[in-house]
Design a protein around this nucleic acid. Structure first.
Length: 378
RNA sequence: GGAGGGGUUCCCGAGCGGCCAAAGGGAACAGACUGUAAAUCUGUCGGCGGAGCCUUCGGAGGUUCGAAUCCUCCCCCCUCCA
């Protein structure tokens, strides 16, 4: 929305760190932050139904501009009720712009000032995505939060290269804001700047000058050491206006979420809970559990004895291992439900801790739960 | 009874004198996975701490400097004919 009014209401700030909780208002309702957004690239969070998502506590999910643009096409989705009607999800949706695909499909993409030219990863068709196109496609998709098209810089990258790419992302951001119609959809800018604190700062200031409904941190968790990622997060957040939501894109592990909330981030998305679920790895309050490992062959315990998700309430590790080893479809569904529940619950716990002014204690406890356990004896 | 084909490392299956501890699958075991080209990818996969050595290609002999590969006999399996 081009109103200049923040869609975000800050409810509480931690007394001893930048952690905070709040409410983000969108066309499809409010989102309590800090929040984790399951990734549903192709108008589906892989292996789970929208009903599953509601039950496990997902407040908002992602969709992807590039993928939905090439298949089935944004005009088709517009006709069939927008993304919400098309996929039967009636809570908020954030759509990524395709910027990450410029990065992950770099061998198929060519970047110019005008935009990104792709050869479709499906059939090689040449297609073009400009910042304006990305906004218009997301308007057709009807997402609640749109992301500007950006260029994600790999790690490591030299300063000059980073500076150039970041400057162009800034110009693309201005064009995106300008291209936006008055639909009520929110538009977030994306701070790049690689691993250079001053470039991050400059990028943040440029975006704030343009004025967005929220600010995202892009180009992190691209292979750099964790400490560097946390340092860049800190450095960037400190230059963003506190009354707007802050979104750390593509992150991360449960530890990353805790560390980033601790540093003032409000929103996250990551394929990790869903992808790793499909690859036989479950997140638990005591650490990671690789359900395909032979030690769970006859283990009657649920994946996480502390967890109250549908999977943990009904199924044993032995059964889940059997399903996974047999490549049964249900394995992917039950594992995904568990991991997403774990992520969403972790965020709920963090919100609660911030509201109760005890986030620092929460963070300490989060780690002590893990330190007490050897992965083999989870 | 006659004619032909075959028995290979957990399974399927290639190899048909040296480059073979033996291709390639599968299974199994382990690892990776961070804005999803991902129900994907990588590694290990006879034994012994390694260079190396030892045991292995239905069984027993033999030929050869050298055999999973050639010869003899034996044991199983399959197809066709009677």
């Amino acid at each position: 929305m081009k109103t200049g009014i923040s869609p975000f209401t800050l409810l509480r700030r931690a007394p001893d760190c930048p952690a905070r909780c709040g409410i983000l208002r969108t066309l499809h309702g409010e989102v309590r932050t800090p929040v984790f957004m399951p990734v549903g690239t192709q108008a589906t969070v892989k292996a789970v139904t929208p009903e599953n998502l509601e039950q496990l506590g997902a407040q908002i999910i992602l969709g992807n501009t590039y993928h939905l643009f090439i298949r089935p096409g944004h005009e088709l989705i517009r006709k069939l009720g927008g993304l919400h009607g098309f996929m039967n999800w009636h809570r908020p949706i954030l759509t990524d712009s395709g910027g990450f695909q410029i990065f992950s499909l770099k061998d198929l993409a060519t970047i110019t000032e005008q935009g990104a030219e792709f050869r479709s990863h499906l059939d090689g068709t040449r297609l073009f995505l400009s910042p304006e196109d990305a906004v218009q496609i997301q308007e057709a998709l009807g997402s609640d939060i749109m992301m500007v098209l950006d260029t994600c810089i790999p790690w490591p990258s030299g300063r000059l290269e980073t500076e150039k790419a970041t400057a162009m992302t800034g110009r693309w951001a201005a064009r995106s804001r300008h291209a936006q119609a008055d639909s009520g959809q929110l538009l977030f800018g994306i701070v790049q700047g690689g691993m250079y604190r001053d470039l991050r700062q400059r990028a943040a200031e440029e975006l704030v000058n343009i004025g967005f409904d929220g600010y995202a941190l892009g180009g992190l968790s691209v292979g750099e050491p964790k400490e560097l990622m946390y340092e860049m997060t800190e450095a960037t957040v400190s230059h963003l206006p506190g009354e707007y939501p802050v979104y750390l894109m593509g992150v991360g592990t449960p530890e990353d979420l805790v560390e980033s909330v601790y540093r003032g981030v409000d929103m996250f998305d990551c394929v990790m809970p869903t992808r790793n679920a499909r690859n036989g790895m479950l997140f638990t309050s005591r650490g990671r559990l690789v359900i395909k490992n032979s030690c769970y062959r006859d283990d009657p315990k649920p994946p996480d004895e502390q967890c109250s998700c549908y999977t943990c309430r009904h199924y044993s590790r032995a059964y889940l291992r059997h399903l996974f080893m047999s490549k049964e479809i249900l394995a992917y569904q039950l594992n995904s439900i568990h991991n997403l529940f774990y992520y969403c619950s972790l965020m709920a716990e963090m919100r609660h801790a911030i509201e109760q002014n005890c986030f620092t204690a929460f963070r300490k406890n989060f780690y002590s739960m893990r330190e007490n356990v050897e992965s083999a004896t989870i």
